[in-house]
Design a protein around this nucleic acid. Structure first.
Lengths: 221, 221
DNA sequence: AATTAAATTTAGATTTGCCTAAATTTATTT
DNA sequence: AAATAAATTTAGGCAAATCTAAATTTAATT
């Protein structure tokens, strides 16, 4: 595996995440994700195409090649292992780890990462509940769905939260909702899409549509 | 403390190390140390002077200001803490840690480093025997001297080895010389500057001038 | 002290990664 | 289907960090 610049890695990672939703990624989408300008995206797409990391025809959007996906998974592996390390060993809270891991992930020494993995006991998910690719780039597909899709009276486990702002953290803490928390949807209201849920078998609480949209659960577990 | 680029940090660190020997650092010295060209050094010196990290008059050499020294010690702190982590927790050998730490040291998140320090139990020296600056930038002066300077019949402790190539490692391993090993100089030969030493009170062995020049000990401990 | 040699700086170029503004292509509407 | 709007690309520029080659300053030597 060749080495890539921090900038290249950030583009590759962003494309990987956008692809999972979209299939094909567009220039504007990526510019928004990376908080940069469309012209900068086009420049980098040419470069990554030349390195055979993505398929790209002008005006037609782009997606990672098999090679590009491998690189993306390697970056995500580093990111999530560092997140696990920060939370588990250094006692960072789960809302703090992402930012620090954004820097650590670009240290691309395979031996370092594989030894870190071993030291941590080969964890399978990071502190946000997202799966960690193994040394071969294999990643579990976690069958995560949004809590809004969950049928009523089904027990499930909170797997991740998509928006990691401190505002949402405050609300989640207040409602005692965290990764691994058991949730059961009791009622959905069509009027405002709010819902009543039970957390760890305690009395029902109400959550708004905005909050619900950011909570993901492992379906069937 | 402001943030500096990886390149700036590498210059600052190199100047710090050269200063300890020289006092004043020259353009050519620094170019050799960083394996770059004198013209590149001059460019960066102007930049670092503008940031008040060093004193520099054209053609007169340069040295770090108090601010520059603070920055250098912060980088060295990160480097040596990561080295300790790699050796102690991830089981890297002491000749492998330097290279990996060269990358990790540029992640400049103070909270990360202070929590890492705490996690490691506030170690005072890295795997090469070099002291680790504390969170305030304070560093023990280790009074290290080269084994060639050691008086005969004085017991001392190996503190560090300056050249970290695998060739020297092989030789040191063969002779059972490691950080923390007790050494006692028994005889010095003026002809070739070779010397006879005892390692951990075992029978005397002979080491060459070249090897001796690379072994440093804590004088008086 | 004048000359030569060595060290250092300046001038000008290159690459990477980003930007703005203008041009182009594709999509949407009337 | 023509006109308009939106998305994307191209053109040209800028800053950081590097380089080579030429000019300059300092040091060393005759």
């Amino acid at each position: 595996m060749l080495n890539y610049t921090t900038s290249e890695e950030n583009y590759i990672k962003a494309i990987y995440h956008l692809q999972k939703v979209d299939g094909m990624v567009t220039t504007n989408e990526l510019a928004a994700e990376l908080q940069s300008k469309p012209a900068s995206i086009t420049d980098m797409m040419k470069k990554l195409k030349a390195k055979k990391l993505l398929n790209y025809q002008p005006y037609q959007g782009f997606r990672l090649t098999a090679d590009g996906t491998k690189v993306a998974l390697s970056i995500i592996r580093r990111h999530r292992l560092w997140e696990f390390f920060l939370a588990e060993k250094l006692k960072f809270t789960w809302d703090e780890v992402h930012e620090v891991a954004e820097d650590l992930e670009h240290v691309s020494n395979k031996k370092l990462i594989d030894k870190l993995d071993e030291y941590l006991g080969f964890p399978r998910v990071d502190p946000h509940g997202d799966p960690i690719p193994d040394a071969n780039g294999k990643i579990e597909n976690s069958k995560k769905i949004c809590i809004t899709e969950l049928p009523v009276n089904t027990i499930s486990t909170v797997a991740s939260v998509s928006d990691q702002s401190s505002e949402i953290l405050e609300l989640l803490e207040h409602k005692k909702i965290a990764i691994g928390t058991k949730v059961e949807v009791k009622k959905k209201f069509e009027f405002d899409n709010s819902m009543e849920i039970k957390i760890n078998r305690q009395p029902v609480i109400t959550i708004s549509e905005q909050l619900a949209k950011n909570i993901f659960v492992n379906y069937g577990s």
